[in-house]
Computed example of a mutant assay.
Amino acid sequence: MTTSTAAVGRILAVGSLKPSLAQTLSTTYDALVLPKEGPERDRFLTEYGGEIGVVVTSGRAGVAAELMTALPRLGAVVNFGVGYDTTDVALALERGIVVSNTPDVLTDCVADTALGLTLDVLRGLSAADRYVRAGRWPGEGPVPLARRVSGARIGVLGLGRIGRAIATRFAAMGCPISYHSRREVPGVDYAYAASPAELAASVDVLVVATSGGAATSGLVSREVLEALGPQGYLVNIARGSVVDEAALVDLLTNGGLAGAGLDVFAAEPHVPEPLLALDNVVLTPHLASGTVQTRDEMERLTLDNLTAYLAHGKLVTPVPEMG
Rank of each mutant, 00 (worst) to 15 (best):
E321D: 14
V105Y: 10
G139R: 05
R153E: 13
V188H: 09
W137H: 00
S195E: 07
G313F: 09
V143F: 14
A152C: 15
G62A: 09
A127M: 03
K36Q: 12
T57K: 08
R123Y: 06
L287D: 12
L251K: 11
L303H: 06
A90D: 15
I237T: 15
D296Y: 01
P318T: 09
A70H: 01
E226W: 00
V63W: 10
T87W: 08
T3H: 13
V56S: 07
G323Q: 13
G213F: 09
G160N: 07
A127Q: 11
G124L: 12
T210A: 06
E268P: 08
S221L: 05
Q231G: 14
R43M: 06
G141K: 09
E226A: 12
L301C: 04
V249R: 03
G139L: 03
E184L: 01
S217Y: 05
V98S: 14
G158N: 09
Y131E: 04
S178V: 07
E226P: 01
R43P: 00
A167I: 03
P72N: 09
T69P: 01
A152Q: 11
E299N: 08
V8S: 11
R43N: 12
V207S: 14
D189Y: 00
D30I: 01
E297K: 11
R133S: 01
L117H: 09
V264W: 06
K314S: 14
L91Q: 14
D279T: 11
V281R: 08
T102W: 04
A31V: 09
A197N: 00
N280R: 12
T253R: 13
E184F: 00
A64R: 13
T253G: 13
P186D: 11
V203N: 11
L125F: 14
L310N: 04
N236G: 08
V224I: 04
V105S: 12
Y179C: 10
A209W: 05
D189C: 02
F170A: 03
V132A: 14
G240F: 07
A65E: 15
S150L: 12
R10W: 05
L278C: 11
V33Y: 09
D189N: 11
D304T: 05
